[in-house]
Amino acid sequence: MNSELTHNLNMIAETARDFAEKNIRPNIMDWDESQTFPVELFHQLGDMGFMGIVVPEEYGGSGLGYHEYVTILDEISQVDPSIGLSIAAHNSLCTNHIYEFGDEEQRQRWLPQLASGKVIGAWGLTEHNTGSDSGGMNTTAVKDGDDWIISGAKNFITHAISGDIAVVMTRTGEKGARNNSTAFV
């Protein structure tokens, strides 16, 4: 690893560590005991650039890479793994799905809000009879003219209660077939 990258990662680690010590550690037990999801904290994380870590700057993100992503998650998770996991879920499951697979209109519409932390991303895959087996899921999406009709149910949706924008996985082909799923926002 070159010295410039090492220097940058050390600065990012220190920033994430300091933020976690100041804003997360003092509140862990209160959040846990009251079963509170600290939405305001995630708005602050957005201000820090931690809610759109790998999202390009043109969409309001930090434009960083996966070395930085892992560094931030590691430092936050050392203080509170549940917050680290929520940052990862927001960045990877919701936001990155839209960035990687959305069209330009979808990226422009949703990524700036997600990267800023003004909204929290949710993700739905798991179903009661199939777990997280995307090939066997029962939730379907069927094209009806210009619309899609989604039928089914999800459970254990990441950020279901606190999320504002959700990516939901559906089956658009035969159960068990390859390439049989489509994500909807």
Rank of each mutant, 00 (worst) to 15 (best):
Ile150Lys: 06
Thr140Tyr: 03
Thr140Phe: 05
Ile161Gly: 00
Thr140Pro: 00
Ile157Gln: 02
Asp146Cys: 01
Val167Ser: 06
Gly152Pro: 05
Val167Asp: 12
Thr139Val: 11
Gly152Leu: 07
Trp148Met: 14
Val168Phe: 06
Asp164Trp: 08
Ile161Pro: 00
Asn155Lys: 11
Asp147Ile: 07
Ile165Gln: 04
Ala141Ile: 09
Ser162Asp: 03
Asp164His: 08
Lys143Ser: 05
Ile165Ser: 06
Ala160His: 06
Val168Met: 09
Gly145Gln: 11
Phe156Val: 13
Val167Glu: 10
Asp164Thr: 07
Gly163His: 01
Ala153Gln: 12
Ala166Ser: 04
Trp148Glu: 11
Ile150Arg: 01
Ala160Gly: 04
Ile161Cys: 04
Ala141Met: 12
Ser151Asn: 09
Ile150Cys: 01
Ile149Asp: 02
Ser151Asp: 07
Asn138Leu: 14
Asn155Pro: 00
Ser162Gly: 05
Thr158Cys: 05
Val168Glu: 09
Ser151Arg: 08
Phe156Gly: 02
Ala153Thr: 13
Ile165Glu: 15
Asp144Cys: 12
Val168Ala: 02
Ile150Glu: 11
Val167Trp: 07
Lys154Tyr: 07
His159Thr: 13
Ser151Pro: 00
Asn138Ile: 09
Ile149Thr: 04
Asn138Met: 14
Ala166Glu: 06
Thr140Glu: 11
Ile161Met: 13
Gly163Cys: 07
Thr139Trp: 06
Lys143Gly: 00
Ile149Gln: 11
Ile165Pro: 01
Trp148Leu: 12
Lys143His: 03
Gly152Ile: 15
Ile149Glu: 13
Ser162Lys: 02
Asp146Asn: 13
Ile149Leu: 15
Ala160Leu: 12
Val168Leu: 15
Ala153Glu: 10
Ala160Trp: 14
Asn155Asp: 15
Val167Pro: 14
Ile149Gly: 00
Asp164Leu: 05
Asp146Glu: 15
Val142Leu: 13
Ile165Asn: 02
Val167Phe: 06
Thr139Leu: 10
Val167Ile: 14
Ile157Phe: 00
